[in-house]
Design a binder for these strands. Structure first.
Lengths: 112, 112
DNA sequence: TTTCGCTATATCCTAACAAATATAACGATA
DNA sequence: TATCGTTATATTTGTTAGGATATAGCGAAA
């Protein structure tokens, strides 16, 4: 069996992490479930962890990534903004491209 | 100030990590100093940590990456094999290429 | 005005990981 | 055969990130 190359990418803003794979997973789950707590449950992470992540995302981003509402019908919820959706899509695309790129590069090591 | 994209790449072999940035730093330091303990001191990490890393590298690699000698003149030492040097060089090149590639990709996010 | 499920936040606790320490073994050299 | 600076490894101690738990506040709707 041969070597594999793996990668992790993330976006920073003013030395704060804006987006990484975990954050993108969370944002997708929010989009699917309509709430932060449901998203946390679906990802098997604590609400606190999810909240901390989302808070950090929104504090680092130039424009709001989600809109969170407290109280009201159903207790409230969270949803992605247009900007949030664009970020998620762009991140995914870059990540996929990066994997493809690295797989190409790998043959520099394969036959040493 | 605008977003930055960062990355971390590593090479795996049979689900074990072979090379990452930290390991490559260590290998370079071994090459420069001729010993594992000197390399550890130069990187400000404990000997134990350095030894554990190097041990893992050599156990994951298909061919030996360093040759370590115990006792004798100077107490012993460690040096990179040809193969080890090739791995280090290839990793560095792939890493640099990856950075350049990702910087290109970043403008997908810059103007959202 | 009570209920509901959610957002928001503080505090404690623990388990994983890193650092610190100790010690054995090695072999060329003098 | 004593010395030296290594490699090699076990064990103990510290630290910190994350998990668990608790609770307050919110607002639409019935």
């Amino acid at each position: 069996m041969s070597y594999k190359i793996k990668s992790r990418i993330w976006i920073e803003s003013e030395n704060n992490v804006l987006l990484g794979e975990g954050r993108v997973h969370l944002l997708k789950a929010i989009q699917e479930t309509g709430s932060l707590s449901k998203a946390a449950r679906s990802l098997n992470i604590s609400y606190k962890k999810a909240w901390t992540l989302l808070d950090s995302v929104n504090k680092s981003a130039k424009k709001p990534v989600t809109i969170n509402s407290i109280g009201g019908k159903g207790g409230g919820g969270a949803e992605l903004t247009e900007y949030g959706q664009s970020l998620v899509n762009a991140f995914d695309e870059i990540n996929r491209n990066c994997w493809a790129f690295l797989d190409e590069q790998l043959d520099k090591i394969a036959n040493l």
